[in-house]
């Protein structure tokens, strides 16, 4: 039987762990507010520019920009958004699972994948799993900035232009609400026509000054805003997931403490009973 002192020690250590997890829960909860605000702020721009790009892809332009032309997919590129830190439940691993399934599906069609990774966790994951990583952005931090993402985006755009990849997807977590986060894979390039667009007849924009230059600038801005939005959204997911994970850990620690206390009381009771029995036994032997 485990001695009473060992159990007391164990209770103490579980209590310490519980203090840490409950502090982390509270920190995550307060950060979640802020990251959610950022996400809300990034949304209008990202949504509008997606609309404009949708219109653009639908326009029956004389000039088809190479970003709009669908080629046979021989190589696929992914921009993967992950978190920098762990302790956020299955957030990253769920997304990686979805991604790996998608990569496998393409591989069965003999389409190899190239990856641009954002966040330390993705880098760590693909270091152990293996994969063709062409760009990595680490330490995005809690206040991601567009500037820090441009390098990776530029790299994927270059690959698309030199036809080393024929399709570019964005993989990230979607913030449904603070309890639910859904991994999603979204096509960035070639530009996807907006299916809900009501202007389906023949029309085209007037371009000022020049279609090519304009579309190039717009697409660059589009990718930046989509990736930025995904990163900001992922950060909100991260904090929410961490809050939930840490709440679970705190609850589990509580349960464990209760069990250990019960065990300790039993052990204490047992040792008292045994002592009494020994005294009684000794007294009986003297008579």
């Amino acid at each position: 039987m485990a001695g009473g002192r060992e159990i007391v020690k164990k209770i103490g250590s579980v209590q310490n762990t519980q203090k840490v997890t409950s502090a982390m829960q509270m920190v995550a909860a307060s950060k979640m507010r802020r990251t959610q605000d950022r996400m809300e702020e990034a949304r209008p721009y990202a949504r509008r520019i997606r609309n404009v790009i949708g219109h653009l892809a639908n326009a029956s332009a004389e000039y088809r920009h190479r970003y709009m032309v669908s080629r046979d997919v021989k190589n696929i590129g992914y921009i993967v958004i992950s978190t920098d830190k762990g302790q956020c439940g299955g957030l990253n691993s769920n997304m990686f699972r979805t991604l790996i399934q998608d990569i496998r599906a393409w591989e069965r069609k003999d389409v190899p994948a190239s990856l641009a990774l954002v966040g330390n966790k993705a880098a760590g994951f693909f270091r152990s799993v293996g994969g063709n990583v062409v760009a990595a952005i680490n330490n995005v931090g809690e206040n991601p900035e567009v500037e820090s993402l441009i390098g990776g985006i530029r790299r994927m755009l270059d690959l698309f232009e030199e036809e080393s990849i024929d399709r570019l997807d964005l993989v990230s977590n979607q913030f449904v609400n603070s309890m639910t986060h859904r991994p999603q894979i979204e096509q960035l390039l070639p530009l996807d026509p907006d299916p809900e667009d009501s202007y389906k007849h023949m029309w085209d924009y007037l371009y000022e000054p020049d279609a090519e230059e304009l579309i190039e600038g717009l697409v660059q801005r589009f990718l930046e805003s989509q990736v930025y939005e995904a990163v900001v959204e992922n950060t909100a997911c991260e904090q929410a997931a961490r809050m939930i994970a840490m709440k679970n850990a705190t609850d589990n620690a509580e349960e464990m403490i209760e069990e250990l206390t019960l065990l300790y009381n039993n052990a204490r009771q047992a040792s008292i009973t045994q002592e009494i029995a020994e005294i009684v036994g000794g007294a009986a032997a003297l008579e």
Binding site: H55, A59, Y205, L206, Y207, E208, L214, G217, L218
Partner: peptide
């Protein structure tokens, strides 16, 4: 102010994309 100069846009303008 577009890249090519001042623009005045009223309802029913033709689709236009400019910097």
């Amino acid at each position: 102010t577009g890249t090519l100069g001042e623009l005045g846009i009223m309802p029913g303008h033709t689709p236009l994309l400019t910097g």
